[in-house]
Each structure stands twice: as structure tokens, then as C-alpha cells.
Amino acid sequence: MSIPEGSLLAAHDLHKAYGPTNALDGAAFSIHPGEVVAVMGPSGSGKSTLLHCLAGIVTPDSGTIMYNGHELSAMNDADRSALRRTDFGFVFQFGQLVPELSCLENVALPLRLNGTGRKQAESTALTWMQRLEVENVAKQRPGEVSGGQGQRVAVARSLVTGPRVLFADEPTGALDSLNGERVMELLTDAARSAGAAVVLVTHEARVAAYSDREVVVRDGKSRDMERVV
């Protein structure tokens, strides 16, 4: 097994099948603290499955995932859930905010799930919203804000617990290019300043340009790409 030296999160020889379809077929991956890695590939290539496996959302059929020296696939569901609450953050394509909570409550939610009191959670949440320039929609519900604002709220929610790894699955997929670029700027800046590693799943080269390194997934297999500057 080859786990790169100093990596925070690494996977080796991952296999995952959904029925007759092999989503992952020997994929490998590694990321270092503070690093931004883009996972690229065409639709259906297995990049989202790779992200879900790395985040402990989906259990691979075989292979190894090490996080900070611990074997992820050996953890039970409760431990993996606790890890996602404390060490991981998530941004999805459509934000996936809870529609009935206000934006501020959405951002504060991960903190509250960790046991932080409401006032303190919302105060911290507001700081992150200011950082992502969406404090003006704090009291509004997700349905009442624009797509770009909603996605920035989702980024704030993913960073509010100070995660060590941020998983972003097509975070700009539903936005126009201008909004998409702004979200990516804010996301990568905020992650870098917080020292969080970012696993960025995208199929857009201009989004991948915000990363330090690119990994291409095709037919369930991964390959590290040399960055051409």
C-alpha cells in the first residue's frame, strides 16, 4: 500500500460498484493539509463517488482510506458521523440548505449539532457570513435568496466548524460564471486562511484552476495530472 508521506487524507485501490456499474475501479487519492485538489472527470466517471468515499459517506467495497493516521473504513457509522461533524465540511451543487431555517440558522446548524449554544453558534455563524459577504441575508430563508448567495451561505456553513478537510461537489455547477468565480474565490481563500484542505469535484477547467493539483477520474480509475502553467 502506498500512502504519500505527510498526507492528511489518502485512499488506495478503492473499488465501489452500484449493481453492475463499477463506479470506482482501483482509484487512489491523497491530499495534504491546506492543499486544494480538484477531482475532474466527465459525468458518470466516479468523481462524486470518490468524494463520498473519502468523506466516509459511502463505504467502498474494497480498498483503504486513511485519515490522519486512522483507517476510515474500519470506523463504525457513529464514529464516521462524529468525524464529519468535527473534521469535515461539505458544499454541494445546489447548496442543500435546510429550507425552513433562516440562512443564519443554516450556517449555525453544524455548530449546534456539536453542542454549541445557540447564541454563540449564531455569533460565529454571522462572522463567517460576513467573511463570505452574505450577512445581509442572515434572516432570510434559502428560498428567498439568489443561487450565488445561497451557495456562499453553504460555503459558510461548511467552514463554520473549522474543518480540516472541505469536500465541495460541483460547488459552482448551478451558478453563472461570474457568481461561480466569486464563490470559488471566497471558498478557496477562506479554506486556505483556515488551513483546511479542499477536495473539489468539478468538471470545469476554470473551477479546477483554483486548485493546487488536479486528479482526473475516468471509468473509476484516478490519475494525477501535471499542472500545465
Binding site: 458521523s81 468525524l83 464529519r84 461533524r85 465540511g89 454541494f92 429550507p99 449539532l113 456553513r157
Partner: peptide, 10 residues
């Protein structure tokens, strides 16, 4: 939405 909530550890 339930899946997302569970994804981030709810």
C-alpha cells in the same frame, strides 16, 4: 435533504 444533513454529521 435528510441525506445532506446526515452527510455533515447530524
Amino acid at each position: 435533504l435528510l441525506s445532506v444533513l446526515v452527510a455533515f454529521g447530524t
